[in-house]
Simulated scan of single mutants.
Amino acid sequence: MLRPEVLEYYRRGGERGRLSSGAGRLEFLRTWDVLTRMLPPAPAEVLDVGGATGVYAAPLAQAGYRVTVVDPVPEHVAVSAGLPGVQAVVGDARDLPAGDASADVVLLLGPLYHLQERPDRLAAWREAARVVRPGGVVVAATISRFASLFDGFVKGFFRDPGFGPLVERTLAEGRHGNPREVPRWFTSAYFHRPEELPVEVAEAGLVLRRLVSVEGPLWMSPAALADFLDDPALLLDRLREVEDEPSLLGASSHLLTVAARESAGGAVRNCRAWLTTRAGWRLAR
C-alpha cells in the first residue's frame, strides 16, 4: 500500500512527536481549531483515514465522536486501537474498508501527500466521497508546493548539496523525494499547488467549502512561535482572520481543504466559482 521508503520512514518514528513542539505544535493547534469549526457536532461518525497513532482521533473520541482510524502502517493501527473510544483497522485510502455513505466525516489528514500519482490522489478523494453521507464533510491535508524550499532555509538543509536538486524537482513537478533517505528530510511525497485542490475536489464529485492555510508563514519563525504556543489564544484568533487569504496560501507549510458531498454538477459549478472569484483565489462564501 505504501512505498517501501515511506513505510520505513514511519516505522522508524519519522513523525513521532513532531506535532508536540514548534511548528508541528502550531500545525496541530490550527488543524484542531479548523476541525472544531467545520465538523458536525458529536456524536458523528468519523473515518480518520491515515490517522496514524491517533493524534486527532483521541481528542475527537474524547469529545464524543465515534472514530475509526484507517492506516496502512500496522504499528500505527496497533497504537490507535488502544486509545479509549477509537477503533482502528489497516487499510488503504484508495480502497477504504467502509460502506457507501457510512460516515458523517472523512478525514484525509495524511494520505494525499504520499500519493505521488494524480490518479491515486483522485482515487482517495473519490473513496472519501463514496464513504461520506450526503451533507457530510471531507477534510483533507496537503503539503504546500513551496514547503521544502522554505524548510531548507529554516533548518539549514541547503548546506547539503543534495538538497538543492530535490527542491528543484519538487518546485517543477510537485514530487518530493529523498533519494539518500537522509533521516532529517521528509520521505517521498507530493506537494500541491493551492489551485490544484479545487479541481481534485470537483473531479471527485464533492463541493469545495473552504481552502485554508494551516500555519501561514509563521512556521518559518520558530523563535517567534515559542512565545505564543504555551498560550495560543491570540495566535489562533489572528490566524483565523487570514486563514483563507489567497495571497498567503502558498506560504503555509500545510493546507486544509474542506469539502462536502453534494451533486457532481454542484461540485463543478462550485469549483468554477472559486476559480473565477477574486482573480481565481478567494472562495465565494
Rank of each mutant, 00 (worst) to 15 (best):
G91A: 08
Q62D: 14
G110I: 00
A202C: 09
V6K: 00
R261T: 03
Y56A: 01
E241N: 10
D230N: 15
E203W: 05
A251R: 06
Y65P: 00
L234A: 15
V201H: 00
P111C: 09
G135F: 11
V242G: 04
A88H: 03
V105L: 10
L96T: 06
S20L: 14
P179C: 03
L206G: 04
S213K: 05
D120W: 08
F153L: 14
R3K: 15
G174N: 08
W125C: 02
P97S: 12
L83F: 02
H114R: 06
V201D: 02
A93H: 02
V138G: 00
G99F: 09
E173P: 00
L229F: 10
L225W: 04
A63V: 07
L112W: 11
A44M: 06
A78P: 08
P232M: 11
R285W: 13
V212N: 04
R169L: 03
L256A: 06
D230F: 09
D33L: 10
D151T: 12
A128Y: 00
R37K: 12
E173Y: 05
P232A: 10
G174E: 03
V214M: 06
V69K: 02
A63P: 02
Y190S: 00
G216H: 06
A78F: 07
D48A: 12
A223R: 15
G24A: 12
A52T: 02
N270W: 07
P246A: 05
R238A: 15
G17L: 09
A23G: 10
V207R: 07
P232D: 12
W281A: 12
E195C: 04
A260Y: 06
R66N: 01
P198K: 05
E245R: 10
V55C: 09
G152V: 00
S102Y: 07
V77L: 07
L29Y: 11
E262D: 15
D104E: 14
S253W: 10
A172N: 10
D92P: 04
V132T: 07
V182K: 04
D92V: 03
D151Y: 04
V89W: 05
S188F: 12
L39C: 08
L171T: 02
G85V: 05
R278W: 15
F163D: 00
E243K: 01
R126N: 03
R184M: 07
R126Q: 15
M38E: 15
L108V: 03
L83M: 10
S188N: 13
R118I: 05
L235K: 08
F163A: 00
A202R: 02
L234K: 13
P222W: 08
G17K: 12
A123D: 03
V212E: 07
R282A: 13
P111F: 06
L83I: 10
D231C: 09
T257S: 12
A42M: 09
A88M: 08
Q87R: 15
E203I: 03
G24K: 10
A147Y: 01
G50Y: 04
M1H: 13
T142K: 01
H176Q: 10
V105E: 07
N270R: 15
T36D: 06
F191Y: 07
G85Q: 09
R121F: 09
R66M: 08
G216A: 08
V106Y: 04
R278Q: 14
S20H: 13
T277A: 14
L149T: 05
G85W: 05
